[in-house]
Design a protein around this nucleic acid. Structure first.
Lengths: 224, 224, 224, 224
DNA sequence: GATGAATGAGATTTCATTCAT
DNA sequence: AATGAATGAAATCTCATTCAT
């Protein structure tokens, strides 16, 4: 999920948006759609996907029991739409083409991204939890969500791998590092830390773990 | 999940066990219970917890539609029992009291455990997937499974932390490492790699990622 | 249904009519109404009344999801309107007052009508099927359509009875025939043949059955 | 439908059977199944298939809202089962092999069957109406019931055709009659009369129509 | 102990109808 | 006049749970 850059200011309210003045049909529809996704996000984060009914979503959004189904057609479509929205909101806005030609310290950049990600988990706890709930629901081998989250994981790994490859080229990443394998490990580390945190937020010191995570990235990957 | 030591020989059949020689009632009950858990493990790994009915579990186990409920009382009890069984089977059989007095290289031991864990994921794919499915189901803030898996995570972290603390004492772990925070990161890394693998087993090279994971552990934690 | 005379040229398009030159509002409304009925006819014949939604009707007619309801007010009104239209289109254009004074062979006239009817079934298959679908829907004792189709059946029987009565008067129909009862049997025969055909058009030879039907009428009713 | 021989004494109660003492599971199930079909028969005859919910069926049968679905799995299965039951109850118990070698007057036999059928319609009005309701529901070209009732019609036609063919062989049926085509007409006649009657039982004199029907059969088919 | 029939709550989904544009 | 968004009732179907055998 996250990976959003530090200066991002996007807002995720977390509260069902009260419907203000309405204009065109299109706007009404778009507004309803967002309110429904906001509601789904909260409910998924609290109860999980399967324990949330479409009627609950519609009502928390301030609409009728039937609207969620009317708007999305099926529950699967709602889940897809929410996954899509979270992913697009949190996709790192990194210009990889620029990076590939840069002389910057790629390890430092990666360490910052990792830190951003883990800090975003706390800041956008509902959204993050909803994301991880869906990520977990994607694990069963026959899960419909599987391909969607597999693609998301792949995109993330690819981003990290690109950074590492650029770092090997410009000499800031240790040459004996396998970029693809290290990307799996780094993405795994942040996802695994986030999941532990979301299951039991008070069980450990997240800032300390975030710092440890930085240390892992920097000590292991920096060119000697 | 795993963390099981290399020499472990525990069996996870994955198939409904054919009933052998008949013994006492108690043994028959225990056997039925194990067969039901075996079946639940497979179904959870394939479809997830909510998409699996108790009737399915009973029938895949080779018994009646009603047995799973009769045996466990409620579905929640079955889920708990399975979580319990997987956790107890995979608990690392490490003698921490011995370790604490040892002067072995704690980083090496940890690296081996990490590798064991990731190799076990492939070997016991059904069991592992069932575990991660339940782990994911524990993320929603109101999830009944939350405390169970929070405790499991804590036990794991505690094991790693104990190792690291012993390593700092005997000088094999870098003194600037925070054992608790590093434990979170290491456990996160293996769990996160495992989850990525289970969502899309063919998306990356797991042995390479396992090697990268070892590298992270050794480079970051080894005393200079 | 049918009973239409051979020279009838009424058109039943079956396709959503493409809107031609625009005229007055009233004409546009009437045109939309016809297009909606055309669409309903096709859908009823394919799926039945209850499996057809008003939105489907509007869209097949080339209009919006909402128009069918807007135009007819309720679904029941649309069904009534379609029943009405089919019945009025197919009403036999026979001048009974003329016939009653005629000395034509009434058995021959009836046999021709019967044949016309069965030939029209094939020619206007969609319309016919829609009619029989609604006729079937009129059978339940509490069916709203009951009275409508009861009246239609009665009109048909009355037509046949009038012919037979005239035939008895002018000596072309056997005197021992009960006109009312024979009318029931004749109408039943054509309706029953038509229904069998519509349920399984390839199950028998309709022209042969039509010929057999003529034979029944002529042999039974002709005065000796 | 009918065609049942005169001496048949099978009972069709038409009232939800009060559940008496229960024995084995199998008997309980069979009893529930019959009670559900009895209830479905009544409801279908009153309201039609689509206006009858599975919950209504269960409750009229004296069971729970959920039983109809539990027992039959889907609504389509219930409809099939009822169609099957009515057909098997009313299938003419005629020994065709005997008939084919007989010297009996086949026209007389057919006329008796036709009369039996129409008299059964009145005697078993609920069952008959339920049958015709389903027959009507089989008319839409995409109806799932289509094949079921097409097969039933075909069986009936085949029975009549066999009689006529035997009659041509033994000289009791007019040689210029096409057995297959005449069978379509005869079956059509009784079905069509029955349908008219069920739509409006008071609109005409059924005994008179039955007599007319006999006349049609005898005058048309008897060998000169 | 084990089976499976029966219950009934709850979920998704469809759709006629109402209402705002 | 026409569109289509939104509502809410109702239907089918699933399934944990209870109960009789």
């Amino acid at each position: 999920m996250p990976g959003r850059s530090r200066r991002s200011t996007a807002e995720i309210s977390g509260e069902p948006t009260a419907a203000p003045v309405r204009r065109t049909q299109q706007e009404r529809t778009a507004q309803a759609g967002q309110a429904l996704l906001d509601a789904a996000e909260i409910l998924f984060s609290q109860r999980g996907v399967d324990q949330t009914s479409l009627a609950d979503v519609g009502q928390l959004a301030g609409y009728s029991r039937g609207l969620a189904n009317h708007h999305f057609g099926t529950k699967a479509a709602l889940v897809d739409a929410l996954a899509e929205r979270i992913q697009s909101r949190f996709v790192a806005d990194i210009d990889f083409t620029t990076i590939e030609q840069s002389d910057a310290d790629m390890v430092e950049i990666l360490a910052d991204l990792v830190q951003d990600y883990l800090e975003a988990i706390v800041r956008y706890a509902d959204t993050s939890r909803a994301f991880f709930v869906m990520w977990g629901a994607a694990i069963p081998s026959e899960a419909a969500l599987g391909p969607i989250f597999a693609a998301d994981d792949a995109r993330f790994r690819h981003g990290a791998e690109t950074l590492l490859r650029a770092g090997r080229t410009n000499g800031t990443v240790a040459p004996d590092i396998d970029p693809a394998a290290a990307a799996v490990a780094v993405i795994g580390m942040v996802r695994g830390i986030a999941a532990q945190y979301l299951i039991a937020p008070d069980a450990f010191d997240l800032p300390a773990a975030t710092h440890a995570c930085r240390t892992f990235v920097k000590r292991t990957l920096t060119a000697p």
